[in-house]
């Protein structure tokens, strides 16, 4: 049993380890280890395409995570006190959002937005009051943030809702018995309790958006995110530079995940 588990852990971590080891390879050839060197990290960090892609990915991930966690938490709090058709509609939409494959989200956003833009762009040209050309609506960072936020908002609603469901009702009742205003109760009782869930939702959303390839592949337009850059490089062949990027990305997500994990656990301990 123990031996079996060891094997599974090796299976899970050897591939990651191999990438990390080979990222320190000084040789040009990706599959022969020639000696220890950090030069590929330097090359990766000096590559303007990689840095641009990284900047795009970070901007999109930050905005998506922010919108998703804030709007998601707001919706989760409101949904708690609602029954009837609005609740049913939201439940249905949330389920659809997390159930349908990412690739379908990508496709739908692509053709949905392009169709809307095709209608709006001539309209914008017609009403544009200045001499210069009217701005054109097109796929890019905004559509990326739009698609990521949509999916991640559903995820954040689920996370915050789970925390709300685990909350002790008597605390909010006590608060209103003691003449706290609804907003006062929310700020002083509910918010501190759900805050770890919101923060964890933010961090999970950030990592998801940062790592997402398939939605971005359809929706990014002419923008390049880091996963899109890595994917097209892999297509051209394995290089130590990609290993270095991969190791950095894995390291960064591991770090963020550990924080998210700690927050979620600390949150659940407090509630109990």
């Amino acid at each position: 049993m123990r031996i079996y588990a060891t094997f599974v852990y090796l299976f899970l971590y050897i591939p990651i380890g191999v990438i990390a080891v080979f990222s320190f390879n000084s040789g040009r050839n990706a599959s022969d280890f020639a000696g220890f060197s950090v030069k590929w990290y330097g090359k990766a960090l000096a590559n303007p395409f990689i840095m641009d892609a990284l900047k795009t990915s970070l901007t999109v991930a930050l905005l998506s995570a922010l919108f998703a966690s804030v709007f998601g938490a707001m919706a989760a709090v409101a949904l708690q006190g609602i029954r009837g058709p609005v609740r049913t509609a939201f439940d249905a939409v949330i389920n659809v959002a997390v159930m349908i494959p990412g690739i379908v989200i990508g496709i739908a956003t692509l053709i949905g937005l392009v169709t809307i833009f095709e209608q709006l762009n001539p309209l914008l040209d017609a009403i544009w009051p200045f001499a210069s050309a009217a701005p054109r609506l097109q796929m890019g960072k905004t559509s990326l943030v739009g698609a990521h936020t949509m999916f991640l908002m559903a995820l954040c609603i689920i996370i915050v809702r789970a925390r709300l469901a685990g909350m002790d009702r008597s605390l909010t009742e006590a608060s209103s018995d003691l003449y706290a205003t609804p907003f006062g109760t929310f700020r002083q009782v509910t918010l501190p309790q759900i805050f770890p869930a919101i923060a964890a939702g933010f961090l999970l959303s950030f990592t998801f958006s940062f790592d997402d390839f398939i939605i971005a592949f359809f929706v990014a337009g002419s923008e390049t995110t880091l996963p899109i850059y890595v994917f097209s490089s892999i297509r051209r062949g394995v290089t130590p530079e990609i290993n270095a990027i991969g190791t950095m990305v894995l390291g960064a997500s591991l770090f963020i995940l550990l924080i998210a994990q700690t927050l979620l656990r600390r949150g659940s301990r407090k509630v109990k």
Binding site: I19, L250, S253, L254
Partner: peptide, 10 residues
């Protein structure tokens, strides 16, 4: 929760 792209690439 880490990049499936990079893990597949491995």
């Amino acid at each position: 929760w880490t990049s499936i792209l990079i893990r597949s690439y491995a």
